[in-house]
Amino acid sequence: MKILVPIKRVIDYNVKVRVKADNTDVDLANVKMSINPFCEIAVEEAVRLKESGVATEIVVVSIGNKSCQEQLRTALALGADRAIQIDTEEKLESINIAKLLQKVVEEEQPQLVILGKQSIDSDNNQTGQMLAALTGMPQGTFASKVSVDGDKVNVTREVDSGLQTIALSLPAIVTTDLRLNEPRYAKLPDIMKAKRKPLEVKSAADFGIDLTSRSNVIKVTAPAQRQAGIVVSSVDELVEKLKNEAKVIS
């Protein structure tokens, strides 16, 4: 079985995000960038499926400028077999990313596509579901357990009320939640080996897709800051304040 794992380069989750003074975007100059944490879990899950003999090949793909090759190399070091960079300088919306990935799916014919459920920059939570719709595949989103069983995959999903398990016909799309697995660290020999693994570059413009933006970002602002309140000295004082000052308990 071939598994396709689309990944995204995003601001590292430890970086404190600052909004630019002109309110056009957040400031990404000279900040640490990493593979999106949910995408890293997707790569790890694919590698585990290969280690257990279910998968035979793992292809990772990322859409962005040359800098996202860094994250593709990381994925190769973690165990992916080959990588595709779809080159563009544009910041594409999920629908257009999904359309490009649809073309990759048509070309690569994977049995399983594993993606992160959302990226921690735009927080959209859309691409996997959109790709599923465009390819006509079923989807198991927010997965905490994935088990392939013949021509089906069972996916346990993290939903508001607890866990839901569904069975999907392959080929299928899975999007990862945080508890699916704990990604490994790449070992130095694997990092060295990853430099020699194949990385193909394609131009987004060559796919023949209209990638026109569907929205205008009018402004990006910093959120209203909460003011720190007071430190109370005792449980008694806390209860008194909640009753008489905040009036949130009786």
């Binding site: 995000v17 957040v26 970002v217 990006v220």
Partner: peptide
């Protein structure tokens, strides 16, 4: 966006 660290219009 960005876990609520920025607000986009």
């Amino acid at each position: 966006i960005y876990a609520g660290n920025a607000i986009a219009t």
